[in-house]
Simulated scan of single mutants.
Amino acid sequence: MIEDMLGELGGEVVESVAELAAACEAASRLDIDVAMLDVNLAGQLVFPAAAILQRRQIPVIFSTGYAPTSLPAEFSGNQVLNKPFALADLQKKLALALGR
């Protein structure tokens, strides 16, 4: 569903992963404008991948069913989409993450 929403907004999904190890590997090598990360990947928190992206200065949007205040302090400057969300919510967070 998120991939479809991103496509509707003119975005291109470069890679979609469902496990933390794959997310960290992708975060290390992909040339992307922004990353959208689900906080919980198969029972593991996605923060190691987010840290890699942050070091590379790639904006991150966290998607979560948890409270936004549950993010570690080092990620507090990132956009958060609370599940469930609508297309307009995603569009707004993308614009904010990309500084538009």
Results as ranks from 00 to 15, higher is better:
residue 68 P to E: 11
residue 51 A to D: 14
residue 19 E to F: 04
residue 64 T to L: 08
residue 41 L to V: 04
residue 53 L to F: 10
residue 73 A to P: 12
residue 58 I to Y: 12
residue 43 G to F: 05
residue 52 I to E: 11
residue 32 I to L: 10
residue 64 T to C: 09
residue 56 R to P: 07
residue 40 N to T: 06
residue 18 A to V: 04
residue 65 G to A: 15
residue 42 A to E: 10
residue 38 D to K: 04
residue 78 N to M: 04
residue 69 T to G: 12
residue 66 Y to G: 07
residue 73 A to M: 08
residue 64 T to G: 10
residue 36 M to L: 15
residue 57 Q to T: 15
residue 20 L to I: 00
residue 26 A to F: 00
residue 49 A to Y: 08
residue 63 S to P: 01
residue 56 R to H: 11
residue 56 R to E: 06
residue 19 E to G: 00
residue 40 N to L: 08
residue 56 R to D: 06
residue 75 F to I: 03
residue 47 F to G: 06
residue 24 C to F: 00
residue 66 Y to M: 14
residue 75 F to H: 11
residue 60 V to F: 13
residue 18 A to M: 03
residue 62 F to M: 05
residue 75 F to E: 02
residue 74 E to G: 05
residue 50 A to T: 07
residue 73 A to D: 13
residue 57 Q to F: 10
residue 45 L to Y: 10
residue 26 A to P: 00
residue 44 Q to T: 07
residue 68 P to F: 09
residue 59 P to N: 13
residue 56 R to N: 11
residue 68 P to W: 11
residue 67 A to W: 11
residue 63 S to T: 14
residue 56 R to T: 08
residue 73 A to S: 12
residue 21 A to E: 06
residue 57 Q to M: 13
residue 47 F to Q: 07
residue 45 L to R: 15
residue 29 R to P: 02
residue 46 V to Q: 06
residue 68 P to K: 13
residue 70 S to K: 14
residue 41 L to G: 03
residue 56 R to C: 08
residue 49 A to W: 11
residue 63 S to K: 04
residue 47 F to S: 08
residue 59 P to G: 12
residue 43 G to Y: 09
residue 64 T to W: 11
residue 61 I to F: 06
residue 23 A to D: 01
residue 31 D to Y: 01
residue 78 N to E: 02
residue 60 V to Q: 08
residue 39 V to L: 09
residue 74 E to S: 08
residue 72 P to L: 01
residue 42 A to T: 12
residue 57 Q to K: 15
residue 39 V to H: 05
residue 78 N to Q: 09
residue 53 L to W: 10
residue 74 E to C: 04
residue 37 L to R: 07
residue 26 A to W: 00
residue 49 A to F: 07
residue 77 G to F: 00
residue 30 L to T: 13
residue 37 L to H: 05
residue 73 A to E: 14
residue 55 R to Y: 07
residue 59 P to I: 08
residue 33 D to C: 09
residue 71 L to E: 07
residue 63 S to E: 03
residue 37 L to F: 04
residue 74 E to L: 02
residue 71 L to N: 08
residue 38 D to R: 05
residue 35 A to Y: 02
residue 69 T to M: 12
residue 71 L to A: 02
residue 67 A to D: 15
residue 23 A to S: 04
residue 36 M to E: 02
residue 56 R to Y: 09
residue 24 C to H: 00
residue 37 L to Y: 06
residue 65 G to W: 11
residue 47 F to D: 07
residue 35 A to L: 02
residue 48 P to H: 13
residue 76 S to Y: 01
residue 59 P to R: 15
residue 61 I to H: 09
residue 41 L to F: 02
residue 53 L to C: 02
residue 54 Q to C: 05
residue 18 A to Y: 07
residue 77 G to T: 01
residue 52 I to T: 15
residue 32 I to Y: 02
residue 22 A to S: 10
residue 37 L to C: 05
residue 41 L to A: 05
residue 69 T to N: 13
